[in-house]
Simulated scan of single mutants.
Amino acid sequence: MLALDVREVSLLADYFVICTGKNDRQVQAIVSDVVEKEQKAQVEVKSVEGKDSAKWILIDLGDVIVHVFNEEEREFYQLEKLWADAPFVDISAWVTEK
């Protein structure tokens, strides 16, 4: 999992969070967990796009957009290279991976 600070290079959001699931089931589980935790924290989940395919699911949280990819799509799109002008953000203190 990684995060990019896109404030200086995009009008879409302040941060992109990018993570990968090993299969469709894991991608769906990651998305469900993120949505559930954000709702519990009273963060508005504006939309969830791509949930039917489980290849690339986008969770719009307003200032933060979470991209959850399966491995093939992540390798193909390589968002961190597409947004290479955006610096990485150290989120290790905020996130615990299961």
Results as ranks from 00 to 15, higher is better:
E97I: 15
I65L: 11
K51S: 11
E73Y: 01
E49A: 08
E71A: 13
V9D: 07
V95D: 05
L58A: 10
K55V: 12
A54K: 04
S47Q: 11
R7E: 15
A3P: 05
G21L: 01
V95Q: 04
E49P: 03
I59M: 10
E73C: 04
Q42M: 11
V9K: 00
L12N: 05
Q78K: 12
Q78G: 07
L4E: 12
L58G: 02
D33R: 07
W94D: 14
S53Q: 13
D85W: 02
D90R: 00
F16M: 01
D33T: 15
S47P: 01
V68R: 01
V43K: 05
Y15L: 09
D90F: 02
V17C: 01
E36S: 11
S10M: 12
V48P: 08
E44L: 14
E36P: 06
L4S: 06
E8K: 10
V17L: 13
V9S: 05
V35T: 14
D60K: 01
A3C: 10
E80K: 03
I18A: 07
V45G: 06
M1V: 14
A93Q: 12
Y15K: 02
L2I: 14
D85E: 15
F88N: 10
K55T: 13
W94N: 11
L11M: 11
D14N: 14
S10F: 08
E8N: 14
T20P: 05
S47N: 10
V35P: 08
I59G: 07
I30N: 00
L2G: 02
Q28K: 11
I91G: 00
D63G: 04
E36L: 10
S53A: 13
Y15P: 02
L11K: 00
V6L: 09
G62Q: 11
I65T: 04
E97N: 08
A41F: 00
E73Q: 11
A84R: 02
I57A: 08
G21A: 01
K51D: 13
V95M: 09
E75C: 03
S47Y: 04
V95W: 00
S53Y: 06
